[in-house]
Simulated assay, not measured.
Amino acid sequence: MADDKKRIDHPTGTETVGHEWDGIEELNTPLPRWWLWTFYITIAWGLAYTIFYPAWPMIRSATAGTLGWSSQGQLEGELKAAEAQRAPVLRAIAATPAEHLTGNPQLFQAAVEGGRAAFRVNCVQCHGSGATGSKGYPNLNDDDWLWGGDMGAIHHTLVDGVRNPDHEATRMSLMPAFGRDGILQPDQIQSLVAYVRTISHQRKPDAMALQGRDLFAANCAACHGPDGKGNRQFGAPNLTDGIWLYGGDEATLTETITNSRAGVMPRWGEKLDPVTVKMLAAYVYSLGGGEAKKVQTASR
């Protein structure tokens, strides 16, 4: 019936499709030639793509395509190219002792950048993304080092870890649990806390702190030193500054002296390759708390 109503629209010269709505007719205007050819080309391109590249899904995979290209293969090629580009630098870092890396600013900077990436993967879980640490996890940006902050000491700590009892070369120290093991009585511990807070400038000297001084000399000075400034040979912290690993308030110090602390750090020497560990040491050293002469890196 609609074909019977078809006619030529005189103003445009175009045939109508035979439909009418309230006197409005639809024109059968042909598509532009450029649009049609573009459509045909895209169809041809799509068919060609399915021939040359992976396209049609199969039961276990897709058709491979006549060119043999795959995104996985491209990624593997790019990774191999990147590894080949880094290989000379990695070989140079491997051949340089950790404590000598700072003598070569360009190589040191390359190690720092590699260590920065490794830190984000392996260390931020404990030390934080900015390496500022948290309660029980040291801030790596300051100058307060338990075991030493030069390149050699940092590398040693990373390789052998801290308090890994199954590893002979690990960093090892043991603070007695003075209260739990009955070495000191609660009132003695309170006197000792008062003395520690006095030498850390959190409390004014008084009679209780004076009693704690004698207790400190008898029980703590062997590791922390007679003046309380610590001893890196034992990983004993400096008690006279304002930097605390667990906290320097009265309650936290009481807990520390009563039950002791024994934080553990993994030995990365068995988890990461030697070059990556060395680059981690360079990055930690570069954060600002590294000791000895600093290297002026390219980023400064």
Rank of each mutant, 00 (worst) to 15 (best):
D273P: 08
Q188L: 09
K204P: 06
S191N: 05
S260N: 03
D241V: 04
D9R: 01
L184T: 02
C123E: 02
Y40G: 12
M151Y: 11
L239Y: 00
P57Y: 01
C220L: 02
L280P: 01
A262K: 08
Q125Y: 13
W21N: 13
D227S: 08
D214T: 14
S286L: 06
L101A: 06
N259H: 09
I199W: 01
F234A: 05
N238I: 00
W35S: 09
L287A: 04
T252L: 00
Y137D: 10
K135Y: 12
E78V: 15
W244N: 05
R163V: 10
W35N: 05
I24S: 08
A251D: 10
I24C: 09
D241K: 01
D241E: 06
N139S: 10
T42K: 00
D160A: 15
E78C: 13
F178M: 07
I51Q: 06
L67G: 03
G152I: 11
Q233M: 12
T198G: 01
P266E: 06
R91N: 09
K278M: 13
L107G: 06
A207I: 11
S299L: 10
P57M: 00
S286C: 04
T12H: 06
K294P: 15
A207W: 10
I199Q: 01
K271W: 14
I199V: 07
A62G: 03
W45D: 07
I243S: 07
A94D: 12
A87S: 12
A281M: 03
L140I: 03
P237M: 00
N141F: 14
T96S: 04
L184E: 02
D150V: 12
L253D: 07
K294N: 12
T240Q: 03
E83Q: 11
A55S: 11
E78G: 09
G77N: 05
V295G: 05
R180T: 15
N219C: 06
G128K: 03
T102N: 08
I8P: 08
T38E: 10
E25N: 15
